[in-house]
Amino acid sequence: MSPRLLVLLLTALLGLAGCQEDTPETLAAQKAIAIESGEECHLCGMIISNYPGPKGQLYERGDTRTHKFCSTRDMFAFLLDPEHKHNIQSAFVHDMAVSHWDHPDEETYIDARTAWYVVGSSKKGAMGPTLASFSDEKTAKAFMKMNGGDLYTFDQLNLDLLSQMGF
């Protein structure tokens, strides 16, 4: 095999390998970032900062661009969709234990996979019902006692549950 052909073959193989794995640089870049005024929801196109309640952000594998959502409900509608579910690398939600409902603080994002969620509360987000997200179970239960709803972990959430939330 010629040296030139060998170099081309190795370059192609390295390129394919890079498509399958996230690099340390890609993973380090995947963190929640501030939602700027005028930014639109990745799912519905609404202006994110115009609405109350927790917001969400996620990254797809191998991508350094964040997808931002006007509500946790919209984020989970995208994340749980079978077309996208396998490709989500990281996801973030506001910790409503330390953030004001009407204007969530951009410094209070937590890992969505470790959060606790209250579904069916009286509190509304963009487009109505949303998932109230919390970093700890105790605070989520206290919120639930005051505002109603049921408690879920990330792994318990599914599209059927979201569709039962109504609008």
Rank of each mutant, 00 (worst) to 15 (best):
S37M: 03
Q89G: 09
M127V: 04
F78L: 03
M127F: 05
T130Q: 03
H86C: 02
N87C: 01
H103S: 15
A97N: 12
A77D: 06
F78D: 14
D81E: 11
P104L: 15
N87R: 10
V98N: 08
Q57G: 09
M96V: 13
W101N: 10
A91W: 06
D81N: 14
V118T: 08
S122L: 10
T66R: 13
I48P: 05
F78R: 03
R113S: 15
S121D: 06
A97P: 04
R113I: 15
A112C: 14
A112Q: 13
H94I: 11
N87D: 10
D111T: 11
E40R: 02
A77L: 12
E39I: 03
A91E: 06
H94W: 08
Q89M: 01
R61N: 12
W116R: 07
S71R: 01
Y51F: 15
I110N: 12
M96A: 07
N50I: 00
M75A: 07
S71Q: 01
S90K: 14
E83F: 03
P52G: 11
T114L: 12
C41P: 05
K123T: 06
G128Y: 01
N50G: 10
P104E: 10
D63Y: 13
G125D: 07
Q89Y: 03
A97H: 11
I33W: 10
S37D: 13
A91T: 02
Y59A: 06
A34T: 15
E39H: 03
G62H: 13
I110R: 14
T66E: 10
L58Y: 15
E36S: 06
R73S: 03
V98A: 05
C44F: 03
Y109F: 15
F76C: 01
S49I: 01
A112I: 12
N87Y: 09
P129L: 09
M75E: 07
E83G: 07
A112N: 13
K68T: 13
Y59W: 10
A132N: 03
L80W: 08
F76A: 01
E39S: 02
P104M: 15
D95Y: 09
D81L: 04
P129T: 14
D74P: 01
S71V: 02
T72L: 07
A97T: 15
W116L: 04
D81F: 00
T114M: 07
G62E: 11
T114V: 13
N87G: 07
P52V: 05
I48Y: 04
S71K: 00
L80E: 10
N50R: 12
M127A: 09
T108P: 04
S37R: 07
F76S: 01
A34L: 08
E40L: 06
Y109Q: 11
G62A: 10
T66N: 08
C44Q: 04
P82Q: 00
K68I: 13
S122P: 00
M46T: 04
P82C: 01
I35D: 03
S121K: 03
K31T: 06
L131C: 08
F78Q: 04
D63H: 14
P129Y: 05
A91Q: 05
E39M: 04
S133G: 08
E106S: 13
L58H: 14
A34S: 13
M46H: 06
I35L: 06
L43F: 07
S37F: 06
T72H: 02
K31L: 09
T130Y: 01
